[in-house]
């Protein structure tokens, strides 16, 4: 029994440590980013769950600043890639370059690309060609990149935070479904509230500049990820996650009439994995030691919205993926809510 008591105490200590680091990182980011609490929470959740984030929003909303602040807050290597249509995979992965080793002798050396970092900001990712976008696939899923015969393991924590502009669609290459599925969250960054504008203007146009100090290290983030994966999921919560995912698939027994009519492709099992992982982070951050259905429903929108493909009828009726997810959430009540 002593072993049980110790382990339980350790678990509680780990949970407390998780909450403390989570709170500190949020505090540090909040010194720079005003408002956007939900966006900051979602980015932190994705980072602690080991996923990647697709930030969608118009320019000027602080997406790049948020990612840079997050990198400073966790004291991690940060790199930014500004995607352009002429960018090649070697530009982000790295390539072998000819360098002079001795006088008169040359050799090929591998020059690392900006993808080899802890936090990668892929700015305007939809401006790159599919070839370059696909170069991110291996890095995001396998946490490694392969150039020629060289395979490089990426250092953990590794997190890709990509941004895209939903307005400018000319000259862009929409992300393919396989690429979208790799993102744990798709977060839509909206305009700040009216009461936030004063603080934003004060901090950005004043004489003093807000600084972000490190609240955690990369090693601590990796450790917290291990804690997150240890959070148990009761059967009813797992079933709820599965039903939520299945409800987005047309033709499934949980699909609503709107899903059957307007959805061409629903979420995959990777969506259910993402739901549980994100719900675990949310449960720990809320002080719970097990996932509840409210945690799953709370992360359903950013997890599922980019995994739902609207068909032609839905597009003609202006049905959005967000409306589909909200419809599914309304159709599937919580167990305790019946």
């Amino acid at each position: 029994m002593s072993k049980d008591a110790i382990t339980t105490a350790d678990a509680l200590r780990e949970a407390d440590r998780f909450r403390e680091i989570h709170r500190n990182i949020k505090t540090q980011i909040g010194r720079v980013i005003v408002g956007q609490e939900e966006v900051v929470d979602s980015v932190l959740t994705a980072l602690l769950a080991g996923g990647h984030v697709l930030l969608e929003g118009v320019p000027g909303l602080g997406k790049t600043l948020l990612v840079r602040s997050l990198a400073r807050a966790i004291d991690a290597r940060f790199s930014r890639i500004q995607f352009t249509p002429d960018m090649m995979p070697a530009d982000i992965q790295g390539t072998a370059v000819l360098v002079e080793s001795e006088p008169g002798r040359h050799e090929l050396r591998f020059q690392e690309g900006p993808l080899i970092a802890n936090l990668v900001l892929a700015d305007e990712i939809n401006r790159a060609t599919p070839k370059t976008q696909s170069a991110l696939l291996e890095a995001m899923q396998e946490r490694q990149i392969t150039v020629g015969r060289r395979t490089i393991r990426l250092e953990e924590p590794f997190c890709v935070l990509a941004t895209q502009n939903p307005v400018e669609q000319e000259g862009t290459y929409p992300l393919p479904e396989a690429q979208l599925d790799r993102f744990l969250f798709k977060i839509v960054v909206g305009y700040p509230r009216e009461e936030d504008y004063a603080a934003i203007l004060d901090r950005t146009t004043g004489g003093t500049e807000a600084t972000v100090s490190a609240a955690a290290t990369g090693e601590e983030i990796v450790r917290l990820r291990h804690v997150v994966r240890s959070v148990p999921v009761p059967t009813h919560a797992a079933e709820h996650a599965v039903r939520l995912v299945m409800a987005t698939q047309p033709g499934s027994p949980y699909a609503t009439a709107r899903v059957n009519a307007c959805v061409a492709l629903g979420a995959s099992p990777r969506g259910a994995q993402a739901l549980l992982l994100a719900a675990k982070v949310r449960a720990l951050a809320a002080g719970r030691h097990a996932v509840v259905t409210a945690d799953i429903r709370g992360v359903a929108l950013p997890v599922l919205r980019h995994r739902v493909l609207i068909n032609f009828q839905g597009q003609s009726e202006n049905v959005t993926d967000e409306a589909i997810v909200r419809d599914v959430l309304a159709a599937l009540p919580e167990p305790a809510g019946r």
Partner: peptide, 15 residues
């Protein structure tokens, strides 16, 4: 189990 997950389960049961 003596794993972290088992500890979390016991914490939930205790609560």
């Amino acid at each position: 189990e003596g794993s972290l997950q088992g500890a979390f389960m016991r914490a939930v049961v205790a609560e």
